[in-house]
Amino acid sequence: MSQPAPFFKTLLARPEAVLLFVLVAELVFFSAVGRNFNTADNFANIVRHSAEIGLLALVMMPIILTGGIDLSVGSLLGLCAVLFGVFTHEWHIATPLAAALTLVVGAAAGGLNGGLITGLRLPPLIVTLGTFSLFRGLAEAITKGTMTYKDFSPAFLALGHERALGLPYQGWLFIAIAVAISVLVHRTTFGRSFQAIGFSPEGARYAGLPVQRRIATTYVLAGFVAALAALVFTARLRQARADAGSGYELQAITAVVLGGTSIFGGVGTVGGTVLGVACVAVLTTGLKLIPAIALQGIGSELGSLLTGALLIFALAGGVLAKSLAARRARRQSLAKPQPQPIT
């Protein structure tokens, strides 16, 4: 903090700074024109309605950071929700044990993705496209497409509905996972290898990193947290159905990419992903609270539209900023002949 000028300069060059600006602008704008936007209830709604996608985004981030992708997390959420229903309602397992079992199954399903990708060297896009259908298909087969599990224990349902210190339980869960992933990715040698792998898999291998094992870990982690998201989703809706989490994988990827993580890997921060989740969540909820938009019944559609626009704007802005920086660097390189690392 002793030299504020260079600190802010570097901060402003980061995509996170742009997103933070967007988020603050959203908050100011919706507070001014939205109806009951600035209320504890609305805050709770925003957190509750985006917690599952947020959790998926948090674990999608390390995968994308290694240059991979996981299209199966939404389907896995559905499968885990249904399995949790089977464990509690058909096998009559006590809720805590059933939840633990669900998390194990989620991690194992993630292990299947990771195993196929690293063991058989198949492209992540293809493998997870396969498990995207496989997991959803299994969930539908188990419930025959129609069955719904309901009547879960009140203590479990609290996870989806109660608050502590004004923040819904799933909000605390999101913060805990966000901090954990952030520490893993940015503060441990283990996690920092994700970035190295995404930046250059060959280079990482020559540097002696167990590349395949590290990559597999990110998918196991994604499976585990997808199962956690399934529990949150089930508690929030008080029911488990095979269609739970449909389309969530794309919304999670959107939040990650919006948060400044390069889809090619090697670049990105967990903080950016959190901001990406927050920007989309506030935007989609806020729009529905503007009376003129609500009366037209186009809140949801406008939400998707503006999220898409924001994503393209953020990506295009990033590319523009980079080329400007490169031009400036070229000019400066006459004085200091040090090539800038691409960030």
């Binding site: 570097t10 952030s182 503060r187 967990v270 903080g271």
Partner: peptide, 9 residues
């Protein structure tokens, strides 16, 4: 920086 970004978020 990433930690600061997370805190800001």
């Amino acid at each position: 920086h990433s930690l600061i970004a997370l805190l800001l978020a």
